[in-house]
């Protein structure tokens, strides 16, 4: 999957920094090429929502640069926002609005708003247009936000935990919608989530953020190949070798941990290796290890 050299970036974040009380987003950089889905993962409080809020100018950045569709995001704010669809982790419409009111309220902001498409999406998600927002469950509200975000045919979707509150069926539906959305290769999706199994299905790129810093940003396959889970008996490793492991943990019969493949050759050949997954990578980094400061 190495098409990145000649495809333009639909989203580019360079050296982004922002201090919020005791938390700091520190020198965050990543890029999403056109035509791909990027999963944005990290533990609670890692800075995912903060990064997304900076993109949307909900927070002012301290340093750095954000480019969307190749344009500086503040200079071309209006033009850019007409072309993006956003879903945040909590609903942001007036409780007393019906789904038709929402359409009245937001449709005039978009030249490409398509009423029939909106109705189709609502029907697809089994949402009754005349129902008030306060009568919806959390999952239904998320579906509604996804419907609104898709109705004006955006070129970039920015989704902050869109699957939170959705059941397995609805999550699958959403993944299917994203897949259809991506058949047009000029589009892109940034998708922050906790439910990493969703990403295994659809994501092309993964960006891993931990305590406000980017640890990894690369294609999904490269990331999964880069890290392995290693296991072995208690006395197999020297202290030096143990320090190479990320999230080293001892239990009664042995140890386990995560290892960057590049360091694997320093470990004894008798060690057991297993492929990793995103949850494993996230958890191990959170437990600490070589990269932790």
């Amino acid at each position: 999957m190495n098409h990145t050299a000649n495809t333009p970036n639909i989203l580019e974040v360079n050296h982004l920094s922002k201090r919020l009380g005791t938390f700091a987003l520190d020198d965050v950089s990543f890029a999403l090429p056109q035509g791909f889905i990027m999963g944005f993962i990290g533990e609670n409080g890692a800075g995912k929502t903060t990064t997304i809020k900076l993109m949307l100018n909900m927070l002012a950045k301290d340093k750095g640069e954000i480019k969307i569709f190749g344009q500086e995001h503040l200079q071309y704010e209006r033009e850019i926002k007409e072309r993006i669809g956003v879903v945040m982790d909590s609903p942001y419409y007036v409780d007393a609005w019906t789904m038709l009111d929402i359409e009245h309220a937001v449709s005039s902001f978009y030249s490409k708003w398509d009423h029939s498409r909106y109705m189709n999406l609502l029907e697809h998600f089994s949402l009754e247009p005349k129902k008030q927002l306060k009568a919806l469950s959390r999952g239904m509200k998320m579906k509604l936000m996804v419907a609104v975000a898709l109705t004006h045919d955006p070129d970039l979707l920015i989704l902050d935990e869109p699957t939170s509150g959705l059941d397995a069926v609805a999550r699958n539906e959403l993944m299917e919608i994203l897949r259809i959305f991506m058949t047009d290769e000029r589009k892109g999706v940034l998708f922050s989530t906790h439910i990493t199994s969703d990403l295994e299905k659809v994501a092309d790129y993964i960006t891993l953020i931990h305590k406000g810093r980017i640890l990894e940003t690369q294609t999904k396959d490269e990331l999964l190949e880069k890290y392995l889970v290693v296991k072995g008996g208690l006395n197999l490793l020297t202290t030096e070798q143990r320090q190479m492991l990320i999230g080293y943990r001892e239990h009664s019969v042995g140890f386990d941990g995560l290892i960057d493949c590049a360091s694997l050759r320093h470990l004894p050949t008798s060690i057991v290796t297993e492929p990793s997954n995103f949850d494993e990578i996230m958890i191990r980094f959170n437990m600490g290890g070589e990269i932790d400061e």
């Binding site: 949307l56 100018n57 926002k81 007036v94 937001v106």
Partner: peptide, 11 residues
């Protein structure tokens, strides 16, 4: 209703 967020998604 957290409408500030809504405003920031609009053009």
């Amino acid at each position: 209703n957290l409408l500030d967020t809504l405003y920031c998604t609009l053009s």
